[in-house]
Design a protein around this nucleic acid. Structure first.
Lengths: 220, 220
DNA sequence: CCGGCTGGTAACGGCGAGGTAACGATCGCC
DNA sequence: GGCGATCGTTACCTCGCCGTTACCAGCCGG
């Protein structure tokens, strides 16, 4: 689970936020001021920093800059609504998002998740390519030569299973197990049927029949 | 072109201000009292509200609070004198800036622009444009082909969650978790219902159903 | 040419996911 | 206390996905 470092001087807000975030499944570590926040950051680097703008001593914007100078960890600023200028400064100092107080805990959690998603998404590019075939696992979208083809859920799962083992022959048994969950319905045309429907949509040449063994997706 | 809602009871000041602001390139809509101001706000939400503190019937601070309960549109308060109490009350009610009468029209325009700059700058940081859809991350307001559509809080959070994961399929479970906070109420049409209501407002084509999986916001 | 085996094809009916409407509860506002 | 907006539930309906069944087409060894 994701580790959050919360830097906030107001004890009430700090503990309430900590509780709310922990209930949402985050691992929350807190610091009451800027220097303590920086130290905590150096000791156990978190996945995300939640930083109040108004801090006694070292203000949030300065803390943000210092963290940014040594790390690209996502930073979310907390600010009072009456201080929009600070928010701008915060964003300029390298913050990834900002949230105005007072905030609703579920919304805060959602935005933190969104920021974490944005950051982690850039790292991996999970798109699968097979010749003119293009599979986007997040959007559940399949494109053929750039054109979107709409697949039914079962067809999609079947294609995904084939794609994850591209070039390998998968028996009907294996496919039934991995796509349909389990099942031994004896002798059935089930797989054949869906392969046929899938072929009609993504092109017959994409899936090769291996007589007596099963099917395989040809590598592009 | 920014749309301003001016709420001011004094007809002379109201019309003079309107003229001056229009000459400065603003689109100005006026209301003579609090209730009329609220109605105008609800009907065609402006980009900024210019609000006199001293209003007959419903005073400016109350109007400000009511607007704040539904939106975080920037609000600038106008007052006859720089009464510190009024200033504090106004800012606590959620106003973004404060201008004392009498004021020089060019100065007022400059301050309005400054406030708008702050806000739009923030609005641009998270990219929330999807085709003809434009989401204001501060208020429960979206623009569809330039036309303002006002959403209920739940609809807005739902749209925001979809927008932050645009192009990705979100399951009903995920949506329940991130929009409604948690909840597993077994089998329910709750998400479907709100998707339907949201579609009616922002256009059905914006949200795509992925059978057996969930919903996703189409990328513009 | 025939019969056994494997895989492709077509048509059909059940059913479950999702769309839709209507209702009641709740809450804030007047 | 009345009223309207919003939310969440329930019930109903539709549509198309899915799995079955039956039949057909090659490919073999007699």
């Amino acid at each position: 689970m994701h580790r959050i470092l919360l830097v906030e001087d107001d004890a009430v807000i700090r503990e309430m936020t900590q509780l709310a975030l922990e209930r949402d499944g985050f691992d929350v570590q807190t610091a009451p001021d800027g220097p303590a926040g920086l130290e905590a950051f150096r000791e156990t680097p978190p996945d995300l920093v939640l930083l109040d703008v108004m801090l006694p001593g070292l203000d949030g914007v300065s803390v943000c800059r210092q963290i940014r100078s040594q790390s690209v960890v996502p930073i979310v600023m907390l600010s009072a609504r009456s201080d929009p200028i600070d928010v701008v400064l915060g964003l300029e100092a390298g913050a990834d998002d900002y949230v105005t107080k007072p905030f609703e805990p579920p919304i805060l959690a959602a935005r933190l998740r969104a920021v974490l998603r944005r950051v982690t998404r850039l790292a991996d590019s999970p798109e699968l390519h097979f010749g003119e075939l293009e599979i986007d696992p997040h959007g559940m979208v399949v494109r053929r030569a750039g054109l979107v083809v709409s697949l039914t859920p079962t067809e999609y799962r079947l294609l995904l299973e084939l794609a994850e083992n591209a070039g390998m022959v998968l028996s009907r048994e294996t496919l039934l197990e991995n796509v349909w969950g389990y099942v031994w319905s004896g002798d059935t045309r089930l797989v054949d049927m869906h392969v046929r429907r899938l072929r009609a949509k993504i092109g017959a040449e994409a899936i090769e029949t291996v007589r007596g063994a099963g099917y395989k997706l040809v590598r592009g």
